[in-house]
Design a protein around this nucleic acid. Structure first.
Lengths: 112, 112
DNA sequence: TAAACCATGTTAGATTATCTTACAATTCAG
DNA sequence: CTGAATTGTAAGATAATCTAACATGGTTTA
């Protein structure tokens, strides 16, 4: 809240710029999308748009590829990470609710 | 530190995306550059590249323009802000040096 | 080992994005 | 009123992106 805009997550970077930032070819970047490793959004007329977060993931993919890891293996790794992280998020959400209960009507926020 | 890359300052956004983000026309965005309110960098083949910081400034410009402030006035406001901020930066740099002197050989850094 | 799959390059043709320059129109300041 | 300020629009050129297809060399798998 208050920062409706996360610079890191906002998808505004074109594929050309991503290519420069990562050193990957556009072909590779599109292929990793096909293999469901990244999920750019699209502009009105269909151009792919990436976030800095996507760029970081692509760099990670590039490193794993250099180590010989296949794209389907990378996908599985990410899936596992996501499961773990979702579990933690859920835990925190529950924590948050409990805190809210015990902290009284602070409007649900723990830090004002 | 640790993230040598500032998402906010890195110039990677094309003019079309900036236009969508700000609601300004490309004509307006280029004009504000001509009036020296913003300073995009250029890609290899000459395309303008903006940062999130530029986008925020453009939104600020748009607000000021709606209030009827002329571009040369806006430029002067920014110049004043910059002078003030530079003065503060200089002060902090001097502080930093003094701290380094008194803190001994921490390699010039105040926070490891 | 042959067939299938993986990862990437390259090409082609189409469409969209961006650039610069120029002219037009409106509004505003002196 | 006159000239500067702001923005739109048009034209023509070049660059960026898209999809689909085919090529290729390496790796699995049946």
């Amino acid at each position: 809240m208050e920062n409706e805009w996360s610079y890191k997550e906002r998808k505004v970077i074109s594929i050309g710029a991503v290519s420069e930032l990562t050193g990957l070819s556009e072909r590779q970047i599109r292929y990793y999308e096909e293999r469901k490793l990244i999920f750019p959004s699209r502009s009105d007329r269909g151009n792919r748009k990436y976030s800095f977060s996507d760029v970081e993931r692509l760099i990670d993919i590039a490193n794993k590829r250099e180590e010989g890891v296949r794209t389907d293996e990378i996908r599985m790794e990410y899936k596992k990470e996501k499961v773990k992280e979702d579990r933690e998020t859920r835990k925190k959400m529950i924590q948050g609710q409990l805190n809210a209960r015990f902290m009284g009507q602070n409007n649900g926020k723990r830090f004002s």
